[in-house]
Design a protein around this nucleic acid. Structure first.
Lengths: 341, 341
DNA sequence: ATGAAAGCGCTAACAA
DNA sequence: TTGTTAGCGCTTTCAT
């Protein structure tokens, strides 16, 4: 690998001159300029970004930490996609890593990116952090880190300017409220893995909606899936085995709902005639099932955009973008799996 | 940010001693050892990985370049998952980036990782490279780069030891051969985006299978999707509009098949009674449709494992793993969307 | 317009 | 067992 020194010698100039040519950081005579480019060409020279970063004390890199294994999710894929676009726009290199072990709230992974001197880190919490001091670890980290950290998908009371979160409970309420308004009273729920905060909150939304309509929460109507098709499938079979006394099912997410649909069909329960069905996240596949499955859509685009803006504002010490709660509410997407009672 | 120098001063020792304590690269008296750790603790010191890498001339990092936007695909998600596991096992940091612009065969993205001094790069080609000298750009790159590059999902004649590929045509033949053996004769095909090599090859497999059974390829039975649900849906409608004279449809991938199923159902074409249907890639969702959709599964695990072994062998200058073609053939997964004629 | 030299934070050979 | 010193490849003052 040719170094800048090699280039400078070949071009008959000093290292600094080569650096200036490359960075356009000073006026250079056309002659030397050409000589330098020629040498670069001949030596096939490429700058060592490591050395540049060490010297400049910045890497022009944003680190993105995503939960491992969850990249099966269309939702997360979208999130990555948008992060990438926004990083590109800001002229930043996006370095993606998967969280190694979310038991520690992602702290290790974030640290690892900071040790590599990312200028800033974006962390999507997916999120077992309630097992870990309820986010205190993340809050402490934000205080301590020499670079900005923005956490997606959880609320950090001590750092409202460093987190972006959905009101998952609101999303959870949405489908239930709708069903109630359509005359449904016995509504079942297939939860996600309840070790995850997100799953807890969506379930909570279901419960809140029922209670505020004066309907008691009946534990017999609640089962737990695993956020995958298979979990939705078996949880629904379990539910059907327990009771048939319900007219609707709300699910933690779309995969769960797809699995549940299969179970219902196997038991000759008609959707939506016997039972209305709701997913969550609005996966593209929902339109292609028979019946198509109603869902709740979260504004992922607004969400990530806000997170990235927040991050860049911290990074550039500019004014923080205004928080507009309206941008973060979920909405119903009605399809043919649900109908009035 | 405290540096090693700060630590050394606080501990009353030299920089090198601190370095030795941290790297266990020499015997250290228990006393100084403790003093150093104490100073590290107090200063909240963390080594600068950039500086380490520059000095050691290695980063202990493997770069993974994946196609942008395709992370919607369960298949690619699996691939990332496995890469991560294998990198972990090898004690390497996996740095994931999305290809910025595959028109150049990913060259820019790969270069960018090498400029950051990744010790090695893994590139998943998804792949428009046939527009770009048929992979010559990649082959040239392999010759030129100072670090090993292994390319997944394309064959590079000049570098058989630097690529891992599936025989997509074989996979394509599989479903068609099966259908032919079951008495089907009029078999339609919904292709993927034909700008992609993978889509071309799978289509080619379809054609080869027909021809080797003495059946002419009828262009009226071939349409082009976009690898998404929506493309499969509209391509299938288009096909149905052209003709109903077929008893089976093979698709570029599973999403295409799911879209096609919807179109068929809308037109009251029964699957599998009127038409048998095949996807490709064996997505988990296939089991949860009614009917469940038959598919072709590629051994992604073997594939990535081999690629990573190849990469590590190049990196460590050890013997290259043996290539066993048997590990890379696709297999049929029969479900209820297909039946004998 | 260009060069010399110091410094970014670390490792490693060489001394002691 | 520990310290001194010279790099790693670049940027950036400070001179000229």
């Amino acid at each position: 690998m040719a170094t800048m020194l090699d280039v400078s010698r070949k071009a008959g100039v000093s290292k600094s001159t080569v650096s200036r040519v490359l960075n356009g950081t000073a006026k250079i005579s056309e002659a030397t300029r050409l000589a330098v480019f020629k040498a670069i060409e001949e030596l096939n020279y490429r700058p060592n970004v490591l050395a540049q970063s060490l010297s400049k004390q910045e890497t022009n890199t944003i680190g993105l930490v995503i939960p491992r294994g969850s990249n099966t999710s269309q939702y997360l894929a979208l999130l990555i996609e948008i992060s990438q676009e926004l990083a590109d726009q800001a002229g930043k290199f996006l370095m993606i890593t998967q969280v190694s072990d979310e038991v520690d709230g992602g702290v290790k992974s974030i640290r690892s990116l900071v040790d590599r001197r990312c200028d800033a880190v974006l962390y999507y919490n997916n999120s077992f952090f309630d097992h870990y001091n309820d986010g205190d670890a993340l809050s402490d980290l934000i205080d301590e880190l020499p670079v900005p950290l923005v956490v997606m998908n959880c609320y950090l009371p001590r750092h409202p300017d460093h987190c972006v979160w959905f009101d998952h409970a609101q999303g959870g309420r949405l489908a239930v409220d709708y069903l109630l308004s359509q005359g449904h009273k016995r509504i079942a729920y297939i939860a996600g893995p309840l070790s995850q905060r997100t799953a807890q909150l969506r379930l909570q939304g279901y419960q809140e909606a029922l209670l505020s309509s004066g309907i008691a929460v009946d534990p017999i109507l609640i089962t737990e899936g695993d956020r995958l098709y298979s979990g939705g499938y078996s949880a629904c079979h379990q539910l059907l085995h327990r009771t048939r006394d319900f007219t609707a099912i709300c699910c933690f997410n779309d995969s769960t709902a797809v699995g549940a649909l299969k179970a219902l069909q196997e038991k000759k329960v008609s959707v939506p005639d016997d039972v209305s069905l709701f997913g969550f996240d609005n996966d593209a596949v929902l339109d292609y099932l028979t019946p198509s499955i109603s869902s709740v859509v979260l504004p992922a685009h607004n969400f990530v955009t806000y997170a990235m803006r927040l991050l860049l504002a911290h990074l550039n010490q500019t004014e923080l973008p205004e928080f507009d709660a309206k941008l973060f509410v979920g909405e119903l997407v009605l399809r043919t799996s649900s109908k009035p009672l």
